[in-house]
Nucleic acid binder design. Structure first.
Lengths: 168, 168
DNA sequence: CTCATATAATTAGGTGGCTAATTATTAAAT
DNA sequence: ATTTAATAATTAGCCACCTAATTATATGAG
């Protein structure tokens, strides 16, 4: 994400804008503050999760499995939903299996395939993590009323639709 | 970062809220969308930078050096400003030095210390990267007027002041 | 002056991402 | 029926981050 602690001041931005006249100072400022806060939130989330022996990658796998009717999915489906590669998912499942939070089951119909199932220990781990996460997140967002939250969504969507400018 | 592609629907959130009554659904939704967009922005930025042989870590080092009057700083100061450890900064400087974008200079007054200086090649690299970055960012943010940008700052600040809820 | 402590940078080793290559199996085309 | 292509999972090796330990040097207290 954005590690940078030392965000540019208005003066620094103006100085750069002298050399690079393309610079849109308020756009840079909004962009950097957004990345900065998101990074802080992500680090804070990991801090919370690490108290329970998890980090985001493994935590999402448990949640994705809990969403399933039979608490079961495949590595490839999990990788797609979690937004990581299959290679990365193999590693995450390795770690979760080592900790006994999920188990791998062979599929008799397609012998290429593997099922991953949330174990009782995995469910129980979620049952201690999730209330803690929800409570902290509620407290974190307590300063925003419903109108603020809706307005935030709108602004994020506006930025999101401009993101392709980077990929052109 | 938030890798997760498959953000929970309202239904999924409600289902989880039945098991975990602490859940504040609109808070979770705002939180996840914020992390999601920031991740997409960060990936998009890296895409842009990688066209110029850089990623965020190395790019920030070059920018931090360019901010300095004499284009020079130390690994420890750079690490603090960039928000990474000194060990990580050693690696980033190694890479930049290998590419000839910065140079290490010994400090005669304190022989523990090393100076890192932006080379002409480093400045020239920035002179091609920055206009590209600024133009794309301007286009990305074109959907937000100044009022939106100010409102976004306010909302981010509100969330930021709640972040300690995660670290308690 | 010397010893303990602090500081600067690096090295070593771990984690969670990535891509590319490999292995096993299934499906499809000739 | 056999070959070819696609798919599922894994392995191997790279990168950027981390913490902890190490090396070299500087500083301050007795």
């Amino acid at each position: 994400m954005l590690q940078l602690r030392d965000l540019p001041t208005k003066e620094t931005l103006k100085k750069f804008a002298q050399r690079y006249p393309q610079a849109d100072i308020s756009a840079v400022s909004a962009f950097l503050h957004l990345l900065r806060l998101a990074t802080d939130l992500s680090v804070a989330l990991d801090t919370c999760l690490s108290r329970h022996g998890l980090l985001q990658g493994r935590w999402w796998v448990l949640i994705l499995l809990m969403r399933e009717e039979n608490l079961t999915s495949t590595p490839s489906a999990l990788a797609d939903k979690a937004g990581v590669t299959r290679a990365t998912m193999t590693g995450l499942i390795d770690g979760l299996e080592r900790d006994g939070l999920v188990e791998r089951l062979l599929d008799s119909r397609d012998r290429r395939s593997v099922s991953v199932k949330l174990t009782a220990a995995g469910q129980s781990r979620l049952d201690t993590v999730m209330p803690d996460y929800y409570r902290r997140l509620h407290d974190c967002m307590a300063g925003l009323n419903e109108v603020d939250r809706e307005r935030l969504h709108e602004i994020l969507n506006l930025i999101g639709s401009g993101i392709e400018a980077f990929n052109r």
